[in-house]
Amino acid sequence: MAIETFKQGILPHLKLFPAGICFTFAYGSGVFKQKGHNSVKDNMVDLIFVAENPLSWHTANIERNPKHYSFLRYMGSKAVTAVQNFGAAKIYFNTLVPVNNAVIKYGVVSRESFIEDLLDWNSLYVSGRLHKPVLVLQNYDDGDIKMALEQNLYSALHASLLLLPESFTEERLYHTLASLSYRGDFRMKFGEDRSKVSNIVKCQMEHFRSLYEPVIKSLDQWVDVDFLSGKAEQDVSPSAKLYHLNLLPKTLQMGMLEEWSRDGKYHDLEDILRAAAYDTECGDLVNAEIEKIVNQSSWSQSIKGVLTAGIFKSIKYSAMKVSKMMKSLNKT
Rank of each mutant, 00 (worst) to 15 (best):
T251S: 15
S77L: 01
S70Y: 01
D235F: 05
D279W: 11
P66G: 08
E213P: 05
K250D: 04
I272H: 04
Q84F: 02
F25K: 00
L72Q: 03
S195W: 08
L124I: 15
Q296F: 12
S198R: 09
A19D: 14
T169L: 01
W260F: 14
G30M: 03
Y106L: 02
Q204Y: 00
W299K: 10
Q84C: 07
V40T: 15
L47C: 08
E259L: 11
H207A: 14
L149T: 00
A159G: 05
Y27G: 03
V83Y: 09
N199A: 12
D271P: 00
K196M: 06
M326P: 04
V80F: 05
K304N: 05
S123G: 11
A79M: 12
Y278S: 11
G283V: 00
N53R: 10
D271Y: 10
R183T: 11
F86Y: 15
F312N: 07
T332L: 13
K78F: 10
N85H: 13
R129G: 04
N94M: 07
H244T: 02
G76L: 05
L161D: 02
S302R: 07
F25M: 02
S77R: 00
T332F: 11
G283M: 06
C282T: 12
Y74L: 12
N101A: 13
Y174D: 00
D235A: 06
H158S: 03
D46K: 06
F312D: 10
G28P: 02
Y125E: 01
D226W: 10
Q34D: 10
V103P: 00
N100H: 12
S181T: 11
I115W: 04
V201R: 01
I272T: 10
E206R: 09
K217L: 13
S155P: 07
T5Q: 14
D224H: 14
K217T: 14
A82H: 09
T59I: 04
N94Q: 09
L228G: 03
V306H: 07
I115L: 04
V108R: 01
V215Q: 04
Y140N: 14
S328H: 08
N199L: 05
S261Q: 10
R262K: 15
L149Q: 01
G143F: 08
T251H: 11
N94I: 05
Y69K: 02
Q138C: 10
K7Q: 14
L211T: 05
N53D: 15
A240F: 11
V103E: 13
K67Y: 09
S56K: 08
H131M: 06
Q204M: 04
Y69W: 07
M1L: 12
K321Y: 05
K331M: 12
Y278W: 11
L180N: 03
M256K: 07
D224I: 13
